[in-house]
Simulated scan of single mutants.
Amino acid sequence: MDTQELGPGIRYAVATRHGGVGTAPYDSRNLSGAVGDDPETVRRNRELTARELGLAPDRVVLMRQVHSRDVTYVTEPFGAEAPPLDAVFTDRPGLGLAALSADCAPVLLADPVARLVGAAHSGRVGTVSGVVPALVEAMAARGAEPARMVALVGPLACGLCYEVSEELRAEGAAALPELYATTRQGTPSLDVRAGITAQLARAGVGEVRQDERCTIEDRDFFSYRRDRTTGRFAAYVWLTD
């Protein structure tokens, strides 16, 4: 699994569903302990992935994601009882932050000067409620400057695939107009990537990168929309020094 640079001394990676030890329907690198997979398999996959990234397995922060806008600063992993929240940030080198996904957007943020990195889980509900702007604001309160920040919007269900009811599209677009979209078939949809990108721009984030892969279309990723019973992949970010 390749790691890439989000800024000087800052690395990130997006783990696909491949390369782990699981079996169907979670094959093979499921990283979530909340989808019905064998807990020992999940533990082994988390450990394997951390080691591949050069991280200590006991130095990775995983959230209990609940589609909220709640953010917290972390200095160590939560342990067995992670609190319910959808964004974390840190200034501790070697502490990996992970956002799990299977159609929602994993969003990574970094300020290389302030030496702060963050990770958010932003699906339809989290995007409408503003979890990514909340993460930008929280990091800024600890010394980050949005203009210096680099963001990565990771793989997610694209606007051409993410079909919703007319009512949900109207509700989402009323809160965030950029969410309004239409599928290839001409039915109502939401463009979560466009919504998050607009939020980052309005928050003043200096650079926004995109991983354009669609989780529904690309079978390298888990997709709840496509498969229902399935695993979760993750995007990771960390300070190297």
Rank of each mutant, 00 (worst) to 15 (best):
M1Q: 03
E5A: 09
P8L: 10
G9Q: 08
I10L: 01
G20R: 01
P25N: 10
D27R: 07
D27Q: 06
S28M: 11
G36T: 00
D38T: 02
P39H: 08
P39F: 03
V42G: 07
R46Q: 11
A50G: 06
A50L: 11
R51A: 11
L53M: 14
G54I: 04
A56W: 12
V60T: 04
V61Q: 10
Q65G: 05
Q65I: 13
H67F: 11
V71D: 01
Y73K: 15
V74N: 02
P77K: 06
G79T: 14
G79F: 13
G79S: 13
P83S: 05
V88N: 03
F89K: 07
F89H: 06
T90C: 05
D91P: 00
L97S: 14
L97F: 13
A98Y: 00
A98C: 00
L100I: 14
D103R: 12
P106K: 14
V107D: 02
V107S: 08
L109E: 10
D111H: 15
V113H: 06
G118N: 02
A119I: 05
G123W: 08
T127I: 03
V128R: 00
P133L: 03
A134G: 14
A138Y: 04
A140T: 15
R142K: 09
G143W: 12
M149C: 14
A151F: 00
V153W: 00
L156F: 00
L156A: 01
L156M: 06
A157W: 01
C158Q: 02
C158D: 04
L160A: 15
E163M: 10
S165M: 13
L168Q: 15
A170M: 02
E171A: 14
E171G: 10
A174T: 13
A175I: 05
E178C: 12
E178G: 02
L179N: 03
L179R: 01
Q185L: 14
V192T: 02
I196Y: 05
A198L: 03
A203K: 07
A203L: 02
V208G: 01
V208M: 08
R209C: 04
R209T: 04
D211C: 12
D211L: 03
E212W: 12
C214Q: 07
T215N: 03
T215F: 07
E217C: 13
S223T: 08
D227I: 09
T230I: 06
R232W: 10
F233D: 04
F233A: 09
A235D: 01
V237F: 06
